[in-house]
Computed example of a mutant assay.
Amino acid sequence: MYESLFNYIKQHSKSPISADDEELIKKSFLPRGLKKKELFLEQGSICNYTGFILKGAMRQYSVDDSGTEHIIQLAIENWWMVDRESFLMKTPSVYNIDAWENTELLVLSLENLERIHTIDAIKEMFWQMNQSNFIASQKRLNYSISLPALERYEELVKNYPDFVQRFPQHTIASYLGISKETLSRVRNKYVHK
């Protein structure tokens, strides 16, 4: 169960993990399962866990006053899912997070994160993750304000091809900040390029 997590840590850090560190990590991450459409976090609640996805797919989204969902993040195996602000600041979340597919996670509380943050490999992994997340967020913001819909879709297909296969068109459209109709036209142009 923990093999994917340990592989992830090794890929994102240079420091070795001792047997004692490995046991502490196993005690700190708890297994959790979510059924499709089950909430991991509900808007207005505090995000008490960050989750490492072992199997499945999740989405983070807000809902506006008219009931329209705005996808903030999509995640699949070997990705993390959390509302960072709510998790770190212990403030009510403005987001919902749910499972798009039946999902298996390893969840980590802030208390347990602080406990394992003494492990060099964990510190390095989280530093690397934060840097990658910041860069990806900057790119996504830049794409959404500067690229036409077709180019945004091309970037998504190039960088995250699994998303296009695993999430429905309306979710992809929301993630790209376009309508379903626009996505349909964009996909048609993309296919005929």
Rank of each mutant, 00 (worst) to 15 (best):
L113A: 05
P168G: 06
E42M: 15
R166P: 04
F29K: 08
A19W: 02
V157Y: 14
N7H: 13
L24Q: 12
A149D: 06
L30Y: 01
S174M: 00
H192S: 12
N130T: 08
L110K: 15
K180I: 07
Q131S: 10
V186P: 03
I135M: 05
L54Q: 09
E69A: 03
D120C: 10
P148D: 08
V94E: 06
S66C: 11
S66V: 15
Y8A: 08
L147Y: 12
D65R: 11
S13D: 06
N48M: 11
E154M: 12
T68L: 00
K193E: 07
S28Q: 09
V164W: 03
N48C: 12
N48E: 15
K180Q: 14
N133P: 02
D65T: 11
L39S: 04
P168Y: 00
L5C: 15
A136T: 06
Q43K: 14
I145A: 06
K27N: 09
M58L: 09
S93D: 11
M89H: 03
G177E: 09
Y61K: 00
F40I: 03
P148K: 13
I53N: 09
I71N: 00
R185V: 14
N96L: 02
S174Y: 00
Q43S: 15
L24M: 13
Y61L: 00
N102W: 05
R185G: 07
R115I: 11
V157A: 15
D162K: 15
N78I: 07
Q43H: 12
I53P: 05
L30A: 12
K90P: 02
K14G: 06
L141M: 08
T171S: 06
F167L: 07
F6M: 05
A57D: 01
S109G: 12
V63D: 02
I172C: 01
L88I: 13
I116Q: 10
T68M: 02
